[in-house]
Amino acid sequence: MKNQFVNPGFLVNYIRPLTPWCGGIAILLVMIGLWFSFYNSPIDYQQGNAVRIMYVHVPSAWMSMGIYSFIAISSFFGLVYGHITAFSLAKAAAPIGATFTAICLISGSAWGKPMWGTWWVWDARLTSVLILFFFYIGYIVFSKSFNDFSKGEKFSSILAIIGLVNLPVIKFSVDYWNTLHQPASISKFGSPSIHIDMLIPLLIMFFAFIFIFIHLLMIRLQLELNNRRLNIKNMKSYGDLK
């Protein structure tokens, strides 16, 4: 049973019928979440309507960190056990994670201008998230810059594991140093300092983003596995692979 899921052919047969369902759930959740965040959530006592940017910004920030951990863990299993599926999962997830990080940076910038009075500052939180974005870009570029697939996978996996060090820096940057960015509201000890009417749309959007990620990951995993097959075929026909 365990080995079956590592087998790419078996996995693709298993996830192919699930893909449209995940997409459907994602669309439904995004619609509900957007309705909540635009029409059925209160304004903030300080920030007024600008607080609605949070419902996109915060879930995409969580996704960017979660997907990076996923890539690093997959890369670890790929390196240690040599599973094709683990490498392909990591490579399939990278552009999705990079997009979520970009959404997080852009929406944060759009939120910062009206509230803080600036698009961008080099404080610890903002800078460490930008570094995370560069790690994503580096991973994608590295994994594609070798003719030999397996070489690119190996080097980019090491890069992904190195970048894992950045995640605790992002998480704790707002606690250890003085930053312009405010500290965490939800993932902290004690009760969350966010009103329940604002927490509900935030969590719906978070689950919507998770389903978007799973949906895209399923599609991209099939693409990566097919790419790999093509690459091996090409290498055989050019005589690179003996």
């Binding site: 006592y45 920030q47 009075g117």
Partner: peptide, 24 residues
């Protein structure tokens, strides 16, 4: 030469902040 505003990690509707006695 430049002033930036910080906001805290508390998010709540204006009614709640009034009930808590915060002035804004």
């Amino acid at each position: 030469s430049n002033i930036l505003a910080k906001h805290d990690e508390n998010y709540m509707p204006p009614e709640v902040s009034e009930a808590l006695g915060l002035e804004y």
